[in-house]
């Protein structure tokens, strides 16, 4: 399964990608929300988006809103240094919110598993 990792910080993107790859996903990186929107519009093989919240240009949340607004329903997991509960509350449509933390390996893996389980018909 191919996953798009969106983060303007290349190291953070690498780290997220490493966690995902370790969990058996194929990770593709995009360095901004705009780049993500572009890749996602042309590459249907990407099945899930894991995006950082805080980026120049459009934020992860805005990227999510843009996807939904253009009818793209692919699961979207938001990473943030802030309180994930509050973010989730502000945008209930998000599939998951995960705190950027050293626990990423377990929390992100769990979040993705939950999202995929919830999406399964």
């Amino acid at each position: 399964m191919r996953v798009l990792v969106v983060d303007d910080d290349p190291l953070a993107a690498e780290m997220t990608a490493a966690v995902l790859e370790d969990a058996g996903f194929e990770a593709v990186q995009a360095e901004s929300g705009t780049a993500a929107l572009e890749v996602l519009s042309t590459d249907p093989s990407l099945e899930l988006v894991v995006s950082d919240m805080n980026m120049p240009g459009i934020s992860g949340l805005q990227c999510f809103q843009a996807l939904r607004a253009r009818g793209d329903e692919r699961p979207f997991v938001l990473l943030s240094g802030d309180d994930p509960q509050a973010l989730r509350a502000s945008e209930p449509g998000l599939d998951a919110c995960v705190r950027k933390d050293f626990d990423l390996e377990s929390t992100l893996g769990q979040a993705i598993a939950d999202v995929l389980a919830a999406r399964r018909p």
């Binding site: 805080n54 050293f102 990423l104």
Partner: peptide, 9 residues
């Protein structure tokens, strides 16, 4: 971003 990236690393 320092807060987020350093935490993950």
């Amino acid at each position: 971003s320092m807060r987020g990236t350093a935490a993950t690393l």
